[in-house]
Amino acid sequence: MPTTIDLMNHRTAITVTLATVMTVCLASAVVLLRRIDGMRSGATLEEVLYIPSPKILKRMSLGYNGLLADVYWTRAVQYFGAKHRAHAMQYQLLAPLLEVTTELDPHLIVAYQFGSTFLAQKPPEGAGRPDKAVALVERGIQANPNRWQLYYELGFLEYMERHDPAAAARAFERGSQVPGAHQFLRVLAAAMAQQAGQIATARMLWTTTYETTEDKMIRFNALKHLRALRVDEDVPRLEEVAAEFKRRNGRPASGWAELISAGLLRGIPVDPLGRPYKLLPDGRVEVADPDSLPFINQGLLPGKKPESLVVEKKS
């Protein structure tokens, strides 16, 4: 006959058994889930939109399309972020995700602004699809003709990514006519029209971006571009100095020190991140760490392609 003590133990045993079963099952389920994720993330799910038609989705959202747009915008950002971290070269889903987002909520300005940047930049910094970026911003302008930021974005893309100053000038011009537009648009339009020095124009554009945006990510991106522009200005100048030394002395300089003592330089030149440039025996100049300076066209190792053609090389 079981005593009270036995029964207390019996009840405790049931509790312990159930708790153990629960924990073990849950843990095993999580392990399996990770395997399932491993199987699917790269292949099926990530690259498949739940509902690829924004119009159907809009009807299915039962009026909550604003919220759903936010969900899709978040998905787009996550998708981009995850791919970007993995240094992906293809971003197939980005354009449709953005299309769905902006179709669900045509007034979600950030989606046009950030989205077009993601789309336009060269892989792995972006999807490398300036055409889609321009189309996205054009749709944005159609839906929100009074947001000057979108014209600015469009002009930016036309000039920076599509290298079409005339189209950029038209975009800036259109934008400058919107009530309340940033006055700088007019300056930019003029600059584009003038086809002034490319690096200077580019710097003007990026500086405007840097100063007008409040978003950290865009601001940082602008900063990276500004740094790259400085490298692109610095490197030819330094190479010019090195060539000058060779002309005068009939031999290449052994290092920066020689150039400094020759009075050609005031100090050891450093890149925008504060690291000294490298002077190679053949007179070329390189940045210390090209990976920390994306978008540069100058100062790269031989054979290494520029990551982004921010500014066309002067031919």
Binding site: T15, L18, A29, L32, R35
Partner: peptide, 22 residues
């Protein structure tokens, strides 16, 4: 994997239900 996952998850949830109910 899906079979395993569904059964394990259901087992865990059912055990939790039993645990609370107990």
């Amino acid at each position: 994997y899906n079979t395993g996952y569904a059964l394990l998850y259901a087992a865990a949830a059912t055990s939790a239900a039993a645990l609370i109910f107990e």
